Structure formats: structure tokens, C-alpha cells
Simulated assay, not measured.
Amino acid sequence: MGQSSHTLKKPWIETPLIESAALSKVAGCRVFLKLELLQPSGSFKSRGIGNLIRTALLDPTNKDKDLHFYSSSGGNAGLAAIVATRDLGCPCTVVVPHSTTPLMISKLRAAGAAGATEVVQHGANWLEADTFLRQSYIDNESCDGRADSERNQKNIYVPPFDHPDIWTGAGTMVSEIAAQLPPRDDESAGAFPADAIICSVGGGGLFNGIVEGLNTYLHSRAGSQIPVKPVRVVAAETQGADSLAYSLRAGSLQSLQAITSQATSLGAVCVAPKVLESALSPPAGVEVVSFVGSDGDAARGVVRLADEMRLQVELACGISVEAAVAEKLKTSVPGLGPDGRVVVVVCGGSNVTAEMIAEYRLRLQGGWD
């Protein structure tokens, strides 16, 4: 396992950033799309999960150990773990709840390397699956019956969103966005070349990565002189999966009683503690805006992206697309005129088909809101 950072490749890619004329026309400002759905696993999860796995493989304390990665997931995080471990040549076990769709189960099994990937179903929800995983494989590593002296295997827990390495990985897209956006003629030193970044929030790994990535970027460019005009990070959620908005209203970390939204990829009843901290007290130069829409809004975003850009994403991603054209955005991000710039993280997701999008279209025509 003692590979150098130069020989161990990154299991994610630099994704394109494109401007959408159609969305810009509706929004009244320039809308750019960061196409994370093109990551190897089909979602932004490749960055964070991939970075956690790669970091563990490069850790000197793990030298000469056979690392086995264990991921608890409702789908996309597990798929990212399977794809990353497959590409980096190590085994992976993913535990998903019985609520995971057959479509996602088949994608998980198809993505893995033969003999090195195991997909286990346990529990009614992610929390039960995660508890089973940690108790069976992480807290009790000797569960296979072998004595410690016979074991050279180390089990590594891969959570779906709550880990610093995951946030660091997600944050890698910030410098990419800054380099890909066209420069502004009037850009002040160190300023970020967009007014806002919109991202979907489930457990908050993506959100926290973007906030940390912006903080790193602003300080690296401007030192102690943070630009006066802040970058807004718009945290988009759907009603019934709005655990961050719920905690923000309460002013403390709170858990939803249940997930009632159909955007199940946002299905964390409670965000990571660091996420709420970042939202309540963001770093200098960053402001956080909460946006909560309906499942119908999310579906409109999915259909809009399919019609205008020929891209397929989950409901959990569609809510960020719709947030970009919402009237609320204009009041939440002041000064968004024709030259204003909004970046939407098209986070992707693999639990979607053309047939599902056609169903969303029919339901919207029937009055789904």
C-alpha cells in the first residue's frame, strides 16, 4: 500500500463547466452548470468518497496492510466507493437498506470488480444499515474468527458524508470552477468569479466541501484581504428532507422525525454537526442562503435539465437546478442582474431513468407541486 501520491491516481475527474443560455434566460442572470454527473460513479460523490479512500491508501500507517473498505449508503455514496476501490485495486463491501431500489442494487453489483465487491442489504433505512455495518465490520474487526496475529487486513469505514477527507474531496471542484469561469473585467483581487454556488444538501458533505473550498480559495488569492462582496452558497433542499433548514430555524442541531420527500438521496434526518456550524458561522467572504422547495419543484428541475440540456439527474439534483431560476434567488443574492453569475452543481445521481423523468413530466402536467 505504500504508493506515492504520484503513482496512485485520483478516482475522480475534472468535470466541465458550461453556460446554459436557456436557464440564464429564465433566471435573468448567467447560469453555469458544473457537470458532476459526469464523474466515474455518476455523481459528485466520486470526489469525497474517492478522496477518503485514496487518502487511506496513501497513509504511511497503513503501509503493507490489506485495506478493505466498508461503505453504508442509500446508493450513490456506495456506488462511488465501489468505483473508487475498483479503480484503485482494493476490496469493498457496501451495506444498503432494503429501501434501496432494485435499479440501484443492480448498478452497485455491476460496477464492482469480480470477487472484490460485496453488496449487502440490511435494515429498513440508512441508519439501520450503517449501524449494522459498523457493529459487524468496524467495531469488531475480528468478526471473521481469525486471531489478530493472523490478520493483516484493516477495515476502513467509509461514511456517506460526515468526514473531513470527504469535505476536502468535494471542495476540489471550487478551484476548478474558478479556473473554468470566464474572467471578469472588474474583478477585484482575490474575488471569486461567481456571485453564488447552488448545491443540494442531504447530509451536507457537498455543502461543507464547497464552503471549505471557497475559504481556501479566497485566502490563497487575497491573503488577509477578503473581498467585500461575499460569495453566496445556496443550500437547496426539498420539503420533507430539509434537515439543514430545520436546524437553522431552531439554531441548533436537530433531527427530522422521518424523511417524507421523494428526493430520497437527500434522506439524512440530521446533517453532520460541522455542516450546521459552517452554515451558522461561515468563513469570511462566504454567506449561506437556505432554499427549500417542493418535490414538484425538484421534478421541474429534472425535466428542465432533460429538455434544455439533454441531461438526466435525480430529484435530489433537480432542486438545485430549479433554485437557480426561482424568484427567491433574486432576493437571496442581491445584485443578480444580467451580468450576475450563478453556478449550479449538477450533482447527478444514478437512481434515475428516462421512464422516471417521463413520469415526472406527466405528474407535473397533472398539477404536481
Rank of each mutant, 00 (worst) to 15 (best):
Leu127Arg: 00
Arg221Leu: 13
Glu36Lys: 06
Gly240Met: 14
Val302Glu: 08
Gly78Asn: 01
Ser73Pro: 00
Ala111Asp: 04
Ala324Ile: 11
Thr353Ile: 05
Arg134Ile: 03
Ser71Gln: 08
Ile198Cys: 06
Glu359Thr: 13
Pro164Val: 05
Val346Thr: 06
Phe32Asn: 02
Met1Val: 05
Glu322Ala: 14
Ala27Pro: 15
Gly28Gln: 09
Met356Gln: 13
Asn62Cys: 09
Ser332Gly: 07
Ala191His: 06
Gly296Ala: 05
Ser20Leu: 12
Leu8Thr: 06
Arg184Val: 12
Ala129Tyr: 06
Phe44Glu: 04
Thr238Asn: 02
Gly367Asn: 09
Ser43Glu: 05
Asp369Cys: 09
Ser200Glu: 01
Phe161Leu: 02
Ala326Pro: 01
Met104Tyr: 04
Ile198Asn: 11
Arg184Pro: 11
Ala170Cys: 15
Val292Gln: 00
Trp167Ala: 04
His68Gly: 05
Ala250Glu: 14
Asp165Met: 03
Gln135Gly: 09
Ser243Thr: 00
Trp12Asn: 12
Asn152Gly: 13
Ser106Asp: 15
Ser255Glu: 02
Val26Thr: 15
Ile53Phe: 11
Ser255Gly: 09
Val95Phe: 08
Ala124Met: 02
Thr100His: 02
Ile105Glu: 07
Gln312Val: 07
Ala81Cys: 01
Gln254Met: 15
Thr331Gly: 09
Ala179Phe: 06
Cys143Asn: 15
Lys274Trp: 05
Arg47Lys: 14
Ser290Ile: 00
Val346Ala: 08
Val31Glu: 10
Asp64Asn: 11
Pro102Gln: 04
Met173Tyr: 15
Gly190Asn: 10
Gly340Ile: 11
Gly296Cys: 01
Gln312Glu: 14
Val26Met: 12
Gln153Trp: 11
Asp369Met: 03
Glu187Cys: 13
Ile49Thr: 13
Gln153Phe: 09
Gly78Arg: 02
Leu133Ala: 02
Lys330Phe: 03
Arg300Ser: 09
Leu35Lys: 11
Ser281Tyr: 12
Val344Leu: 13
Tyr70Val: 09
Leu57Arg: 06
Pro160Phe: 02
Gly202Glu: 02
Ala178Cys: 14
Glu150Val: 04
Lys45Glu: 02
Ser261Asp: 07
Asp87Pro: 04
Gly340Pro: 08
Gly318Lys: 04
Pro193Val: 01
Pro60Arg: 01
Val289Gly: 07
Gly213Lys: 04
Ala279Leu: 05
Val286Cys: 06
Gly349Ala: 00
Arg109Trp: 14
Glu36His: 11
Ser350Gly: 15
Ala21Asn: 11
Asp307Leu: 12
Ser255Leu: 03
